[in-house]
Simulated assay, not measured.
Amino acid sequence: MAASPTLFDRIIAREIPSDIVYEDDGYIAIRDIAPKAPIHLLVIPRKFSARLDGITDATEMGQLWLTAVKVAGQHAADYRLLVNSGEKGGQVIFHTHIHILAGWENGPDSDV
């Protein structure tokens, strides 16, 4: 875990309520509270890394992406997976997570 618990650490620990749509031993998926698409979910590893490039184990990296694809497929046939890495890459919460964006009638309204 980070030196100070992140918002996602606190959600995982059930200190902060969230709309959980999926969870297993390694991951949790929640609805984003400020959605950028009709369906906007976040897949969060329980094991902390501040950024995507902090995951150096290929198995962990693959499992993260496989989980995101699994969760996305449970909510939409077509979807976008997005990761922001680092402040200048648009990352706001420094706990690795994958955005699932979907649900547009005619495709995405704008780039995210």
Rank of each mutant, 00 (worst) to 15 (best):
Met1Gln: 13
Met1Tyr: 14
Ala2Asn: 15
Ala2Thr: 09
Ala2Met: 04
Ala3Phe: 04
Pro5Leu: 03
Leu7Thr: 08
Leu7Asn: 02
Phe8Ala: 00
Arg10Glu: 12
Ile12Phe: 06
Ile12Lys: 05
Ile12Thr: 07
Ala13Val: 02
Arg14Asp: 14
Pro17Asp: 11
Val21Tyr: 02
Val21Ala: 04
Val21Arg: 05
Tyr22Asp: 05
Glu23Met: 07
Asp24Leu: 08
Asp25Gly: 08
Tyr27Cys: 05
Ile28Pro: 00
Ala29Glu: 07
Ile30Gln: 00
Ile33Ala: 02
Ile33Val: 08
Ala34Gly: 04
Lys36Ala: 15
Ala37Gly: 12
Ala37Asn: 10
Ala37Asp: 13
Pro38Gln: 10
Pro38Gly: 10
Ile39Pro: 07
Ile39Lys: 13
His40Ser: 14
His40Trp: 10
Leu42Ile: 03
Leu42Pro: 00
Ile44Asn: 04
Ile44Glu: 02
Ile44Trp: 02
Pro45Val: 08
Lys47Asn: 14
Phe48Cys: 10
Ser49Phe: 12
Ala50Val: 05
Arg51Ser: 10
Arg51Val: 03
Leu52Met: 12
Asp53Phe: 13
Gly54Tyr: 06
Ile55Met: 15
Ile55Tyr: 10
Thr56Tyr: 00
Thr56Ala: 03
Ala58Met: 04
Ala58Leu: 09
Glu60Ser: 10
Met61Ala: 15
Met61Thr: 09
Leu64Phe: 12
Trp65Pro: 00
Trp65Ile: 12
Leu66Asp: 14
Thr67Arg: 13
Ala68Gln: 04
Val69Met: 11
Val69Thr: 08
Val71Cys: 13
Val71Glu: 07
Ala72His: 05
Gly73Trp: 04
Gly73Glu: 12
Gly73Gln: 15
Ala77Asn: 13
Asp78Val: 09
Asp78Gln: 14
Asp78Pro: 01
Leu81Cys: 07
Leu82Cys: 05
Leu82Tyr: 05
Asn84Lys: 06
Ser85Trp: 02
Ser85Ile: 05
Gly86Tyr: 11
Gly86Glu: 09
Gly86Gln: 08
Gly86Leu: 12
Glu87Pro: 01
Lys88Tyr: 09
Lys88Arg: 11
Gly89Thr: 11
Val92Tyr: 01
Val92Ser: 13
Val92Lys: 09
Val92Arg: 07
Ile93Phe: 00
Phe94Asn: 06
Phe94Met: 11
His95Glu: 05
Ile98Pro: 00
His99Asn: 09
Leu101Thr: 09
Gly103Pro: 03
Trp104Thr: 02
Trp104Asn: 05
Glu105Trp: 01
Gly107Ser: 10
Asp109Ile: 12
Ser110Asn: 11
Ser110Cys: 08
Val112Pro: 02
